[in-house]
Design a protein around this nucleic acid. Structure first.
Lengths: 339, 339
DNA sequence: TCTTCCGGCGAAAAGGTTTTCAGATAAGAA
DNA sequence: TTCTTATCTGAAAACCTTTTCGCCGGAAGA
């Protein structure tokens, strides 16, 4: 049998078959364990595969099997620690499954988001994980007729769509309740963007905690941010400029808490001695701020992992389910009893 | 012409052809602009595409064209701000090109890295961007015979492989020189992992700056870290435990500077009043630490964008080239003149 | 010894595109 | 009118697998 020069491009299954003196079918069977093959042929094929270091062409496999072994992830901002932590969970959830992921960003824009979804669908991803989408539930359901979708931040449950919803309201309640227990009664709130549903829920938690403690809601203590560091800083400065009195600040996410912290530092106000500060998210960096930030822990990593596992289950025709751990108050060093 | 029920699965180019009463070839030609087609057929086809909202199956296209319109990115840690910033650059570089990216993580492990590369290759990515790889240049060159590779952190230049190398040595020099100019002479160094080439180069920059200023190198002031926050904190504590005297600290990356900062805070040592601190990277968060961190700016975003553009150029058969902006000292508020 | 059955294996079709090749039609030249 | 030539279009092959179908030979049963 003549040696085939394996120098011209990557080798194909046909090449292997020829080299081993068997039919392509047999090679395929060995690769996939689809049927019994005699030992001598198996050995010959294995040797050929090794010699030519053949790896099956995934595009051809995908085309034939109707499975791309790829899932799509829609994030909103690829370089935000918020999404990264979740992506890490996804990555771990995918480990050992043979699946890879294509990550695209919707940039907090429903239009662009839908566009990216279509792009993923054209790529024949086997399923999609949508993180903090801005699309309507309707739209998601529409897409889910093509491929299964798992989304965070919505309550959904159909055969091919599943949503995980965190209880933002009680998370915020937890945060504010903690401050109240420490004796704070003048508590400022740096909110998220008004058009954001999570933000609205966190505001609701804030007001509930106050009203339960019979503290009157002071609209002047609420200032809108946009979840970024800079807006936390701006919000803080607005509070000072309008001469508000308060002993604690609750920021709707950790990033804006960071910004608020900096504004405080600039004014020479000590945290937590003069003012207490609570965030929301518990980003990886929040245990290393100065001082470490008291915050509400979102199980970001778990969300990623659980969403992935749920999606894989749906893809495999099993029932869509999955439960994420609840939000949790993490007390670090930015809060203390009011004096 | 009978209406084709477009309810059974996604529609194919064949379906469109049938619906429009033309051959598949014609549809393909219209889609790709490969040849002139009469206006009436074009209109009919366009209408059919619209009606069935057809999108070409990318796996079939890829199989046929030998181009997957996908590039692979190998990072080391998907949830590190260091890589995220670069990924954002990649994302922007890919924008509007029709390319998507599959991101995999090597977890700082040459073995796993090579494994991921093979995985990407089996997926027929059209090229690979390797960020901070641990693999030998040899190995990279080997892989580059299959697909073009652009890598950071190495000096490479072949027809199908390109490396970008930042001048870590002079970056570190800049940092230490800055401290020396401020009058510091006892400067501690929290290094990166010893087996890391970047880390070694930064150490070299540190020693050069000292020797130029005729400051004797004190091995006790150098303590090894691993680029993580925790190691910065540990390193700092080691320095205290062994009763070292110093007025400034240079951390080999921002993350370990954060850790060092926290250790300082715990000891009640003020930054920069008592001790100055310089980092390396300029992560997005570094302008919002307390106080904002003086650091060496790596053009992370630009690296991502430029690497992407270079890769695309190689893929298109053009010459491999690209230049990244130099490292730069960013003076913020963690350094001050020694008193 | 003759059926029956089964395990192992190859031939060929299929999956959805692109592309080559050649056919058909129309337009232009002689 | 007839022969070129240029244009547009369809048929079919190709990309690389997987999978169905059926063939062949040997083992088991009668």
């Amino acid at each position: 049998m003549a040696d085939i020069p394996h120098s011209s491009g990557p080798s194909t299954l046909m090449d292997v078959a020829r080299q081993a003196g068997v039919s392509p079918s047999t090679v395929s069977r060995i690769l996939n364990g689809t049927a019994k093959v005699s030992d001598d042929k198996r050995l010959a094929v294995l040797a050929a595969i090794d010699k030519m270091n053949f790896a099956p062409n995934q595009m051809a496999q995908g085309l034939k099997k109707g499975r791309s072994m790829t899932i799509g992830i829609v994030v909103q901002d690829i370089s935000s620690p918020f999404f990264d932590e979740t992506l890490r969970g996804v990555d771990d959830g995918l480990k050992g499954t043979g699946y890879a992921s294509v990550i695209v960003s919707g940039h907090w824009n429903a239009e662009e988001e839908a566009d990216r979804m279509r792009l993923l669908l054209a790529r024949k991803v086997d399923g999609i994980i949508l993180l903090s989408g801005r699309m309507s539930d309707q739209a998601v359901l529409g897409f889910s007729s093509q491929r299964p979708i798992v989304s965070t931040g919505r309550a959904l449950q159909t055969r091919s769509a599943l949503g995980f919803k965190l209880d933002n309201e009680s998370g915020a309640y937890l945060a504010v309740h903690h401050l109240i227990e420490l004796g704070h009664r003048k508590i400022a709130f740096i909110s998220g963007p008004a058009n954001n549903i999570d933000a609205a829920e966190r505001l609701a938690g804030y007001t509930r905690a106050l009203s339960e403690a019979h503290i009157e809601l002071d609209q002047n203590l609420i200032v809108e941010g946009n979840y970024h560091e800079s807006s936390g800083m701006l919000a803080m400065n607005r509070l000072f400029d309008t001469h508000q009195q308060f002993t604690a600040v609750f920021a709707a996410n950790d990033l804006s808490a960071y910004g608020a912290r900096l504004a405080l530092y600039r004014k020479g106000i000590r945290v937590p001695d003069d003012i207490s500060l609570v965030g929301f998210d518990d980003l990886p960096g929040s245990s290393y701020t100065t001082p470490p930030l008291t915050t509400i822990r979102q199980p970001l990593y778990d969300i990623g992992r659980i969403a992935t596992q749920a999606l894989l289950r749906i893809i495999n025709g099993e029932e869509a389910r999955g439960e994420v751990p609840p939000l949790e108050l993490i007390v670090r060093e930015t809060t203390r009893r009011v004096r």
